[in-house]
Computed example of a mutant assay.
Amino acid sequence: MVFKLFGEQTNGMVAIVEHPFAVGAFVDPHVHTREDEYSIVTEGEIGFRSGDREVVLGPGGYITKPRGEAHMMWNAGQTPARMIEVISPAGLEHFFWAFRELLAGGPPDPAALGALAAEYGLEFTTPPWFSGVVARYHLSSELPE
């Protein structure tokens, strides 16, 4: 992750984080309770499911992910991908910072991840559409080698 802009630089209004997506990578479905997100693909192809909307976007494509709406993202192509995440209001960038620290020691302890998520109002969920997305895009929880 590349931290482009922290909330401390914008009076808490917005934060910007760049996320890389390795081939085969995905983010589990989750809900933000405090902020809205705006994702802009800058490289590769990234799939998004947010509420009832499902789309694969290339460079320049964007999607809104409003607070309270379950969403997930995945690398939908055969090459590495990147996206810019605009977070409003700011604050969630600190979750990403702490999550990066958790990952430094290998796969994070589920209890530690759950506690960190709760601290930032982030809820992991399994919406009814999750298994369909996994099947359509051949996603796996196993990390690619």
Rank of each mutant, 00 (worst) to 15 (best):
L113S: 04
P110I: 13
D28E: 13
E45S: 13
R67Y: 05
A15V: 08
L143V: 13
G121C: 10
V133L: 08
G12E: 03
P80N: 04
V14F: 12
V31E: 02
T79V: 14
W74V: 01
E69G: 03
H71I: 02
F95K: 12
L103R: 13
F95N: 05
G121L: 12
A117G: 05
E69M: 15
E18M: 14
E145P: 14
H71Q: 00
P59F: 07
S140W: 14
F3G: 01
F48I: 11
A135S: 11
E145Q: 12
R136A: 14
E8R: 15
E123G: 01
G68D: 01
K4E: 05
P89K: 13
H94C: 04
T125D: 00
M73H: 09
F6N: 04
V133P: 01
S88Q: 11
A118G: 07
I46T: 01
H71V: 00
H30S: 07
G121E: 01
T126A: 14
G61I: 08
R67F: 04
D52E: 06
A112Q: 10
W129P: 02
P20N: 04
G58S: 06
P108T: 05
H19Q: 05
D28G: 12
G132A: 13
D36A: 12
F99Y: 15
P110S: 11
M83H: 06
V56T: 06
V17W: 10
T33E: 02
A81M: 03
E101K: 15
A135T: 13
I87A: 02
V134G: 00
P66L: 02
Y38P: 00
G132V: 05
N75F: 07
F96D: 03
I40H: 08
E35L: 09
T42A: 06
E35W: 08
G132C: 03
V27Q: 07
T125I: 11
T42Q: 05
D109M: 08
E119A: 15
D52A: 12
P108I: 09
F3A: 03
E142N: 14
K65R: 15
M72V: 03
G7R: 13
A112K: 15
L5M: 12
D36I: 11
P20H: 12
R136V: 05
A111N: 07
G60W: 11
M73P: 01
F48A: 07
I84Y: 09
F96I: 10
E119M: 15
Y137R: 15
F6G: 00
